[in-house]
Design a protein around this nucleic acid. Sequence first.
DNA 1: ATGTGCGGAATTTTT
DNA 2: TTCCGCACAT
Length: 682
Amino acid sequence: MRKITLKHKPPEGLARQLAEDLNPSQREAAAAPDGYNLILAGPGSGKTRVITYRVAWLIGRGVPAESILLVTFTRRASREMVGRLGGLVGNEAGRVWAGTFHHVGNRLLRRSARELGFEPNFTILDGEDQTDLLRLAMDDGGLASKNKLAPKPSQVQHLISFALNTRKSLEEAVAETAGDLVEWTAEIQQVAEAYAARKLASNCMDYDDLLVLWLKLLNEHPARLAEQGKMFRHILVDEMQDTNALQIEVVEKLAAAGAGNLTAVGDDAQSIYRFRGADYDNILKFPDRHPGSRIFRLDVNYRSTPQIVALTQASIACNQTGFPKSLVSTRPDGLKPVVVAVADVYEEAALVCQEILETRDRGVPLSEMAVLYRNHYDSVVLQGELLARNIPYNVRSGIRFFEQAHVKDVLAFLRVVLNPRDEASWRRLLLLLPGIGPAKAGAVYQKLASSGDPFSAVAAAGTMAAVPPKSRGLFAAFVNDLNLIRATDPENRPAAAIQAVLAGGYPATIRQRYDKPENRLKDVEQFAVLAAKYESLERLVADLMLAGDLYGVDASGGEDPTDLLVLSSVHQAKGLEWSHVFVIRLVDDGFPNRRAVDEPGGEEEERRIFYVAVSRAKNELMLSYPSTISRGGYGPTVFSTPSRFITEVDPELYERAELEHDFEVLEIEAKPGDGDDERPTK
DNA sequence: ATGTGCGGAATTTTT
DNA sequence: TTCCGCACAT
Ligand SMILES: Nc1ncnc2c1ncn2[C@@H]1O[C@H](COP(=O)(O)OP(=O)(O)OP(=O)(O)O)[C@@H](O)[C@H]1O
């Protein structure tokens, strides 16, 4: 037989870019041989760049893009990396399996849901849905809320999740993180089981399931393990320091079952997700787990001025644990970071706004500036001031877009269409009807669940009998709305389904139950616009439930909606950079967080959070703290202590700014024709 | 069984 | 300030 060889050329210009855009140690890491590789380096040293170029390099060598798994920490990071990859290798970039652990788990579980007892149309539960189902499970599972000392649903939720993510038993998790609840361990265990049963019965998975069930699939179905091992010939994990035991087990299992090619990238000093089970030993012990693996270090910082690097390095040096890394800035000298004490949170907001406006006047776009804070509520006073001064901004903390009650209501309509067994969504919809409370909602759901076809059951006479007489009219209208929604071919045209929700009784419900109904209706319209980009309801809903970066408030008041100031929690700022960074509310009890410092290892975790915050700045960094603070707007105003993260470093490393006040003289304009015997000026 | 109104408690960080 | 749980009236 004749052999024909198809010739493949590496993408145009890739070789040149690999040579020009990377320094020698970065290049060495990007072009590391197959096998287990660890890239351990400080902030701004080009880790993200290296991992992106490594993927490009692999593709350039003929590795099929679809056999590469690139695990990122956020969806935003994945989008950015795929975008940059597109610039290097063109269309191939889109075929890489890029996403967070949860995204990839979701995609894979859709294919294999049946092997785990689920249907492929399972829905993903967000935190609130989880709490709702857990509350029901607590009623089932012997944790009646009567007892004052009994754990609260949110506590139980956290414990169950923490145990799963750390691969510890519930006993261990309780003993470690909530010692006062040890006597409840048996009940919590029971609740966990009842909760899992409810999820299975309603064909729903929570965030943890996307990992737990993925691992279960790999453990219990050898064919799937072999298949996925083959599928992912190269695995790359960004932000390795914030992976937890569960995630590590999944990737390492995949790598071992496949080609044994795993590249891990990260910085133990930037590990800030301990509350979610992250453990930076996952990165530090990588060489122990994989004898013979290569380690790459990068110690040139391309991001920040030497002055900023000096402060960040001095701060992290206060931690006793962690792997020390040298870091040298390549940038020209800049200004020292500035530390300002302000009188109170209002003065802080005014100061930050003024600095931002002046910086913008000097030609720096708003999108090159960010205000970072430890706790979401640290941003609310500033938001008020930004609104008053017409500075457009984008918030990345707090409630996500889809977590707002009205968006969740609309989502519930879509979700029951998608997965008619979705208990959380049925309950949510039923509870919107006046006269139907938890008991009736439960009874109706039972009728739906026990029938083969919930949609005919919901319209059946027997179901109506369970509805109190005075609610029957509204219930019938609700059933009618559901039918109209289902008639729009919602699976393939999600936007039309949302329009159908808006055409039914739901807007009246919004007006009756919620404040600011017009704003909320606008959000729903916005949701429809977003949905119009999708041709699959399943993908829309899954994307939304996993959309960690889509927040509610997008106050783009200005003319140029693309130039927005960023307000972000430090956690959401991970991996990002801005020219000018403002870190606010640097008071002890706030940043570091008061509750965190009491936990063992808590102070060092908080210091890492501070480290992440200050290392986001490229050119200028301002740290501010109010000298007086009233806790959250209630309670008395007290003197505050400046954050230990400021006071513990050498004062030579920053410049202290004095705040002066300049009152523009108020001239009362005399109206022409007025006499001179006016009221006295104040 | 629902819904309202009171009092007390409490606020990390997120997929 | 807001949210949650509880007691009471419907
Ligand atoms: N060799 C290089 N030459 C010029 N600029 C570079 C080089 N490597 C990285 N940079 C730039 O330095 C900045 C930081 O890079 P990158 O975000 O990849 O760092 P990182 O190590 O991932 O940081 P972090 O740990 O903070 O997420 C980016 O603006 C990047 O473009």
